[in-house]
Each structure stands twice: as structure tokens, then as C-alpha cells.
Design a protein around this nucleic acid. Structure first.
Lengths: 260, 260
DNA sequence: TCGTTTTTGATCGCTTTTGAAAGAATTGCA
DNA sequence: TGCAATTCTTTCAAAAGCGATCAAAAACGA
């Protein structure tokens, strides 16, 4: 697993610990001491530091991974992302819905980020977003960007919280492209964090059309915070693995459903 | 790995270090000393320079590669080399003014960006900023971040425009660290863009203390858009090339002037 | 070539990191 | 519940690393 003869830099060592905990879920102080060949005092200090950064949680005897939804983790770990090609296809299909001079909203999430990457040449558009990553992708060139202010939620790299409404209340977009952690026929859209869902709901109010981008892996998943019911959503873009009943029922409810 | 018998030119040596860090992710001062056959003092200076350029990040005992997702610093890269070390020193001196649990504001600019890089471990702080770069630097870990929303001004990578006031009106910071394009005794602070100066002026109103970070090259320069007079500014941090009359006059007007 | 500027290396306090030790707290087990 | 074993926190001192300073060396320009 871990091996190193010459001393390891402290931040490097902490990174080893962090990624190990993330992967394995738990780790014991004693194991780390043996692997990293430093004293338990140092290990404890590292764990304390990492806990302070919110990277893990200390427990008696070691540390455990912080409880974050596994769905959400996948968002920013592009490598381990199975739905890679589905997401790209969904993003491309969404791109075709964008008209000239549209003002559009993108929220956080890997699918919408892929859509953002397709907008580098589109200087005709106005993009409103609460996603730091989307803004960073288009920082050099692309649409006019209005970034929603607010508190940065690190795990999703989006702006959330009460301050977001200050800006959101003042803009209106033609089309809002939204991601979600899960969706199901009964509960509509759900996501892990209430702050996040609050922003999404607010945007849905301001948007001419709300277009949900969600690969089939999200179908039937229910997360903690409810975003909205299907009545606010105008279209769903998913992939062809979406169980038939979803497409059927949603179309019956008046949504446009497209499968990439 | 790295070996060389005859002396290596400084830029060449730095390039070796840079590419090594990029490839390996981390490097120790001691290893570099042995490989490059120069003193640790020289290695440290190289690392300091490279850090100033944003090519790597120094840590105790060596340096590590910068995160992938940070924004490129193309705009600042080349021409400002002369002021590199001044800016770094100014940023460090500014850092010492930050107290525990402070809420601070950083605006755009290369000096404040350097200050931002020093805040990675400071989870006690609250950072308010309109700088996309500063936010991107601290996206992984660091202070609580409140990003000012608004329109992205590409050239400076900052948020400007009417929407900024929506958020700015609702926050108050203990200390605001501001950059400027130019300052002179008659006109005070000036910058190139009125949108930019509007935000700066707004922040100056909300801040407990306004601290100007400006290398001596800015002294006497006057730009298009007036930001504010000296009455709004509480302190100036510059470098020791600042002409004496600036320090003298400003101190007489009640400012704290520090030369890094 | 000479004088100036830049780079380099050595030294000295100072800070950070590390490991060990002692006492307090937690856990497992009877 | 009480005891033993383990783990944790606190404290302290040693070690490693650091920034600042200064003088020597090298590079540069006239």
C-alpha cells in the first residue's frame, strides 16, 4: 500500500491519510503509524488537522470518512464516473436546445459542467450560474457570465445560502439547465443539501423553461432535500437506459422527455 | 533523476525544479540541494520565486504541485517579474495583520491573489471577495468564502456591476485588502475601469479598516476611474522603493504606512 | 577593465514540527 | 459495576526547517 523510505512531507502524508480514509472509510491510528513510520503523536496531529479541514472525522482509535452522499462524491471524481459518456451525450443534446442570444442558467454538477464546456465559443449567450467550476471553465472566453454570489459550498463548488437570493431575485433566464442528485415519480427532484435545493427552487421560479439533465442512474433515487415537484419542470434529458415507465409517466404529465 | 556537474543558470535551475514538482507532485528542499548542488538558501529563494509565479506551493520542508483546477495566471505572468518579490513581501506583511476569526475582503489583483494563497490553512476566517481567482485558489480548503455575485469582468476575473451591491450591502468585513492600478497624493486611488472602482468604493464603505496593498511601481500613477480619496484608507502596505514623500505625507494624514 | 548589480552561500535567532512521557479518558470484558 | 488495556490529551524538549542579514562571488554593462 504505502511505502517510502525517506521522510515524507507533512502535507503529502496528510494527503495519503485523507485519500486512504476516503477510499477505505475507516483507518486506525496504529495502522497509519506502521505504514507511515512516524510516531502516533504525529498521526494524531495529522488527524486533528484533517478533521479541522472537514476531510474526515476522528473517532476513538482512528478516523472515519465524513458522511457525504456517495452520489455526490461521484460528481467531482471524474475518473470513477461510470456515466461518463451518458453525461456527455446528455450535455450535447441539451446544447441543441439553446437558441441564439438566450440567457441560460446552469447549476452545479458534472453534467451541467459538461454543457458549460460546450459554450466556449458562444459569445452571444448570457450565462447565469452558481457554479464556480462552470465560471472557471468559461473564465477566458465564452458567454457573458453572471455569477450568483453567496457562500461557497466546497463539496459541490457552488454558491448557496441566503445571499444568493439577492442576485437571483434580479435576473430572469430563458432556460435553466438543472442537475439533481435523484429524481423519482413520487417525490420529484431531490438533492443532498437543503441550501442547494433552495437555490434550485428559486431558479426554477425565475426561469422560462426548466430543463432537467439527469442520467438514468439518478432515476428512482431519493435524496434528503426536496427541490421541487414535476410541475415546475418542462423537460427531462436523460439517456436510453431510463426505465420506460419514467418516460411514459412524465410525458403524460406534460414534460418533454428526450433520451440521449 | 536530476544530476549536473557544472553550474546551472538560475532560470534553468528553476525550470528543473518546476518540471520536477509538476511531474512528481512533491519535492524536498534537501533533495533539491543534493541534486542541484547549491545551498539550501538558493533552493528556498527559487521556491519562493516559483511560488510567487503560482507554479508551485511551498510547504514546510519543500514544495508541492498546485492543484489542477486553479485558473491560469496568464495575464500577470511575464511582465511583472520585476515586482514579483515586492508583491510577495507585501502580501506576507498584510497576512500578519489578519487576526483570528477575522472577516476580510480581498479584491482582484496579483498582490491580493498572493495574499489569498496564504490563507489555505486559515479555516477560522471568513473571506469575502469579488475575485474569481481568489475563490478558485481557495476552492479546496481554507476560509469560509462569500463570493460577491455579479457580472464577470474577464480581464480582471472579478465580479462587477450593479448586481454586486446586492450582496455587498449585506455583509460587513473587519479588514478590506485592496489593490489599485495607481495612487497619488492628489487624486487618491484610481483604477482603469469604473465598474471596478464602483465595487471598491462600495467595499470601502462596509469595511472596518481599509488596507491598500500596492507596490511602489503604482506610486504617482493615475488611472481613469477614481476609487476614493485617502480619507477612506486606513493603511498602506508598499515596498521600500516607495518615494519618501509618499510615506511621509500619508503618515501625516493619519495612515499607517508599512514598507515590506 | 572597472564599477555596479545580481546571485549565491554562510550564519544566527526564531518558528514549526516531531516524538516521548505522564496523567486522564474511553473502551472492552468479566 | 469495576478492572485492565488501550487510546487520548497535554506538556515539554529536541530536531528540522525557516527568514533575515551580510559578505563574497558572479554576471553584467559601459
Amino acid at each position: 500500500m504505502i511505502r517510502d523510505h525517506n521522510p515524507v512531507l507533512a502535507p503529502q502524508r496528510r494527503e495519503i491519510i485523507r485519500s486512504f480514509v476516503q477510499k477505505e472509510g475507516v483507518v486506525r491510528v496504529e495502522d497509519l503509524r506502521k505504514s507511515l513510520k512516524v510516531s502516533v503523536a504525529t498521526i494524531r496531529r495529522d488527524l486533528e488537522t484533517l478533521e479541522g479541514m472537514g476531510k474526515l472525522r476522528r473517532v476513538h482509535g482512528g478516523a472515519v470518512a465524513v458522511e457525504k452522499n456517495r452520489l455526490e462524491e461521484a460528481v467531482f471524481d471524474d475518473k470513477t464516473n461510470r456515466a461518463e459518456s451518458e453525461k456527455s451525450r446528455i450535455a450535447k443534446m441539451a446544447y441543441r436546445l439553446i437558441d441564439r442570444n438566450d440567457s441560460i442558467y446552469l447549476d452545479g454538477g458534472s453534467t451541467t459542467l459538461r454543457l458549460a464546456r460546450l459554450l466556449r465559443e458562444r459569445t452571444d449567450l448570457t450565462l447565469v450560474t452558481n457554479s464556480l467550476r462552470a465560471a472557471a471553465e468559461l473564465a477566458e472566453s465564452g458567454p457573458r457570465i453572471l455569477l450568483i454570489g453567496g457562500e461557497l459550498r466546497r463539496i459541490s463548488q457552488t454558491m448557496v445560502g441566503p445571499l444568493t437570493s439577492a442576485v437571483l431575485g434580479q435576473v430572469r433566464v430563458d432556460k435553466a439547465f438543472m442537475g439533481t442528485m435523484g429524481f423519482c415519480l413520487e417525490n420529484g427532484l431531490t438533492t443532498t443539501d437543503p441550501n442547494e435545493s433552495y437555490v434550485k427552487a428559486l431558479v426554477a421560479e425565475q426561469a422560462g423553461r426548466v430543463i432537467l439533465l439527469a442520467d438514468s442512474g439518478k432515476a428512482g433515487k431519493v435524496s434528503f432535500a426536496r427541490v421541487s415537484g414535476w410541475d415546475k419542470v418542462d423537460a427531462l434529458i436523460s439517456d436510453d437506459n431510463l426505465p420506460g415507465r419514467f418516460a411514459k409517466t412524465l410525458r403524460k404529465r406534460g414534460l418533454k422527455v428526450r433520451l440521449a
